[in-house]
Nucleic acid binder design. Structure first.
Ligand SMILES: NC(=O)c1ccc[n+]([C@@H]2O[C@H](COP(=O)([O-])OP(=O)(O)OC[C@H]3O[C@@H](n4cnc5c(N)ncnc54)[C@H](O)[C@@H]3O)[C@@H](O)[C@H]2O)c1
Ligand SMILES: NC(=O)c1ccc[n+]([C@@H]2O[C@H](COP(=O)([O-])OP(=O)(O)OC[C@H]3O[C@@H](n4cnc5c(N)ncnc54)[C@H](O)[C@@H]3O)[C@@H](O)[C@H]2O)c1
Lengths: 226, 226
DNA sequence: ACCCTTTCGATATCCTAATATCGATATTAT
DNA sequence: ATAATATCGATATTAGGATATCGAAAGGGT
């Protein structure tokens, strides 16, 4: 256990990648892995990997060989809370909300969606992927009774702030926000944004660069196979 | 037009937030907005906002008043390519894939999904949200014929690499990857990861901190309303 | 037994993004 | 008109993450 240290957000976000690779090599029977090897596979700097691992790994790495794979897996899963699940509610059972409700992988990541909420009377009362959909009015009561601390927001942007306020009022400490809007929340409430527009912006700039590269004649033999 | 400059990824990802807020104030008839005001609303440093805006805005800001809202909107939309749409294909028509296919907001962000692909014979041939689902074998031909440069990956992680390879082989320049795995791709192909596990990691650490805070007695009056 | 190589941990350096500072300029109020 | 103030752009500084360096330790080969 090394759950008292706090990682930077960047390091934290690298952890699932380490874990994914460690699980893969573990399946292949690999017992020791070097930071160097991981760095090469994941396109990271090896010193960075070493530092990241040292933050959460309970034992030290051995020179010339590396770190024990199984132990790393345990440490990371432990650190990320994959063993003691976090209960969450979801607000907004539209097409994205349904996809998330139906995602059976979340349990592997320590997330458990216990209930969903919506204002649409056609949806309220239904059971979507084993999760019951309640009217929004029931939100506070259920969150308080079940000590829910995570809210997943999948409502249209124009309703996101009021839904967020409700979640905060229900005692939620973290909001996973899929709406394309900046939410206001008290300092102690973390808002983790999943902003597709931000990702698209990166894609768009890259493509524009690629296209102007091409028009400069750098890479014109791409389409000659046609 | 100021499309020759390249923004850092961070600045790029802030753009949609600026845009969202600018559109809101524009609807309320606001014609000039200061970087200071934007910074306050979006919880950013004002110098940072000023710098970001100066990168893409064609005119200068006026001391004591600010920047012209409409022009900023135009400039950002322009920069992000919201006016000339990028065509994309989607691979993996599962629950997430369907949600994305049904997302009618993408067109606002300059993204147009022209077709989908899957290996499941039950899905192939169907039309999902107006988009036809083709067998994977047709991928390369269609991408080359239609000059598709973006691939959206929503297959299970274990098939993601082979699907990515196919996309690369079909001439795609950017992959929007929703699978929880690190993909290998040539340098000129951008892989933009939408990794939910990474977000969950951030949530998890925050909650653990909140909980230990609480057990230290800092914030115990939260549940007294019960 | 000795050398060579790889990897480790620790420390130092670098680099980029974010923030602070400051003079200049436009607007508003007196 | 003049003073007060908010904002701007430019430049300097800070901060934090990523990377490079280096001696020490472990394993493998001869
Ligand atoms: N569909 C996608 O692929 C996708 C992807 C990323 C992000 N998003 C974002 O997620 C959000 C939802 O997208 P969607 O496509 O599922 O939309 P949707 O219209 O299919 O679903 C929205 C749901 O929210 C419910 N709702 C509306 N107001 C509510 C309120 N105040 N309280 C509770 N429920 C309310 C509606 O009844 C509806 O069921 C949007 O902000 C969208 O931008 C969607
Ligand atoms: N469901 C979610 O909420 C969610 C959210 C984020 C990320 N993801 C990720 O997105 C991916 C898809 O998730 P999902 O829930 O939609 O899964 P799913 O099982 O519902 O859908 C996967 C689809 O991919 C198809 N497929 C499998 N192999 C393929 C191949 N080689 N080529 C083309 N198609 C193939 C399958 O036939 C199926 O239709 C997973 O990697 C998952 O981790 C899912």
């Amino acid at each position: 256990m090394k759950n008292d240290v706090n990682l930077t957000v960047q390091a934290l976000q690298r952890m699932p990648y380490y874990l994914q690779h460690l699980r893969k090599v573990d399946e292949n029977g690999v017992q020791i892995i070097s930071a160097t090897a991981m760095a090469n596979v994941l396109d990271l700097n090896e010193v960075l990997v070493r530092k990241d691992l040292s933050m959460i790994c309970t034992s030290k790495g051995k020179p010339k060989s590396g770190f024990p794979v199984k132990e790393l897996i345990d440490n990371i899963e432990d650190y990320l809370g994959y063993n003691n699940t976090m209960d969450a509610v979801l607000v907004g059972v539209g097409s994205l909300g349904k996809a998330l409700l139906g995602n059976n992988e979340f349990s592997k990541f320590g997330l458990n969606i216990v209930a969903a909420f919506d204002i649409d009377e056609d949806i309220v009362g239904q059971v979507v992927c084993g999760k019951k959909v309640f009217p929004l009015e029931k939100l506070q009561n259920l969150c308080e009774r079940m000590h829910i601390h995570i809210g997943i927001l999948t409502v249209p942007a124009e309703f996101a702030q009021e839904a967020a306020d409700r979640l905060v009022g229900s005692g939620v400490r973290a909001i996973w926000n899929f709406a394309l809007i900046k939410l206001n929340a008290p300092d102690h409430v973390l808002v983790q944004n999943e902003n597709l527009a931000a990702s698209l912006a990166v894609l768009s700039q890259h493509l524009r660069n690629e296209m102007t590269e091409e028009s400069k004649g750098v890479d014109l033999n791409e389409h000659t196979a046609l």
